[in-house]
Computed example of a mutant assay.
Amino acid sequence: MPREGYRLRKGRDGWGVYLLSTGKPVELNGRVQTGLPRETAAELAAALAALHPSESGSRDGIP
């Protein structure tokens, strides 16, 4: 099973949370998680990694 990790990426309109395995932005409740303040994106990535610890592996990309 591929490792699901999360990475922050800065965009024009703020920060986004992206899946390491696909490079695509994370979607929650049908909303793409981009354009966020940096702190919010970091907290979201940390929460997702905590919810899926066996899949997350390391916390690369999470400040």
Rank of each mutant, 00 (worst) to 15 (best):
M1I: 05
P2R: 12
P2N: 13
R3M: 14
R3L: 15
Y6I: 06
L8V: 00
L8P: 00
R9K: 15
R12W: 07
R12F: 03
R12I: 02
R12G: 09
D13N: 13
W15A: 02
V17I: 10
V17M: 07
V17G: 10
L19A: 11
L19Q: 12
L20T: 11
G23V: 14
K24C: 01
P25I: 02
V26N: 10
E27Y: 12
L28S: 08
G30V: 01
G30E: 09
G30Y: 01
V32Y: 09
Q33G: 05
Q33M: 14
Q33K: 11
Q33L: 10
G35V: 00
G35I: 00
L36P: 05
L36D: 06
L36Q: 14
P37G: 13
R38M: 09
E39D: 12
E43C: 05
E43P: 01
L44K: 07
A47G: 07
A47N: 10
L48W: 02
L48F: 06
L48G: 04
A49Q: 08
A49Y: 03
A49C: 15
A50N: 10
A50T: 09
H52Y: 11
H52V: 00
P53A: 06
P53G: 05
S54N: 08
E55H: 11
E55R: 12
G57M: 01
S58A: 10
D60W: 10
G61Q: 06
I62D: 00
I62E: 03
P63K: 12
P63G: 08
